[in-house]
């Protein structure tokens, strides 16, 4: 029998949206996305793709687990249709990005995972595009006592273990550990496939469970980090534009300027 893989998928405002669609509310210390749709965090999509590739080779089942407030059913449906078999939504108004830190989120997800059918592998993205932290996956592993490997560009399951190519700055290393395990997935693994319309239609019939935090009987631990300010980034510099009669001359003058300023 193939492995049961759980993919943790966070819903975020589309990180590819133009900067103008992210309104930074300094006083409220929150970012409000305007006019861009929610999407599954791109690295979590990579994790789902990794899971689907394993299932293609070995069979088994994939459960998508998402936690949050007002989860878009259309977004979940599309993700499930790419190749999952079931979805579990941990949903509540209290599951607001601004109220949860990585510690609380990891505690919630670990508790939700405990309620699922026994799993062999948990996959999630290396970090979420909104909080940009990369902490929750490892936290879940720690809380559940699972071995964990981060930054996977390739994930294979065989003989009761998971073998991972882990991205390094100058290449990669091959790391393995016994199942059950948790692996965080990097973008190198490749984009999530698009589901066919037929698959989307069929996915509507797949089992979906909605949980509330109260169902989990978990006491949320206190936060250990606190966001005290939120501002738009300040990146502006004063640009010296090179003026010249032709683009070629501008290229030459740029080189001379960089030398003069000891940049090259």
């Amino acid at each position: 029998m193939g492995p049961h893989i759980v993919v943790l998928a966070k819903m975020v405002p589309d990180p590819e949206g133009p900067p103008s669609s992210f309104e930074v509310k300094t006083a409220e210390k929150r970012v409000v996305a305007r006019g861009i749709p929610p999407v599954i965090n791109p690295f979590d999509e990579n994790a789902l793709e990794a899971a689907i590739r394993i299932k293609e080779r070995l069979g088994g089942t994939i459960t998508l687990l998402s936690a949050g407030k007002n989860l878009s059913r259309a977004v979940i449906l599309k993700a499930v249709a790419s190749g999952a078999d079931a979805s579990v939504l941990l949903e509540d108004d209290s599951l607001d990005q601004a109220l949860l830190d990585s510690r609380k989120t990891a505690a919630l997800l670990a508790a939700a995972l405990r309620t699922l059918d026994p799993f062999d592998l948990v996959l999630c993205g290396r970090q979420a595009s909104d909080t940009n932290a990369g902490v929750v996956g490892l936290g879940v592993a720690e809380l559940l006592g699972l071995p964990a490997v981060t930054l996977a560009q390739r994930v294979e399951v065989s003989d009761g273990k998971v073998v991972v190519e882990r991205v390094l700055s100058d290449g990669y290393e091959v790391v393995e550990c016994p199942l059950p395990a948790l692996v965080t997935v990097s973008g190198e693994i490749g984009d999530l496939r698009y589901p066919s319309l037929q698959a989307i239609r069929a996915a509507k019939e797949l089992p979906q469970r909605v949980l509330r935090p109260d169902d989990l009987g978990v006491d949320l631990p206190p936060s250990w980090v606190e966001t005290v300010s939120l501002e738009p980034p300040r990146r502006e510099r004063r640009c010296r534009l090179v003026e010249a009669d032709s683009p070629a001359e501008a290229g030459e003058k740029l080189a001379l300027l960089l030398r003069e300023e000891r940049v090259i």
Binding site: L241, V242, A248, A250, G251
Partner: peptide, 25 residues
Amino acid sequence: QVSDYGVVGDWREVLPAFLTKVREL
């Protein structure tokens, strides 16, 4: 707006001359 130095122009025309000069320097 986030750069220290800039050239407005098509890289196809700017870069070859830039590269030649950089090599020389």
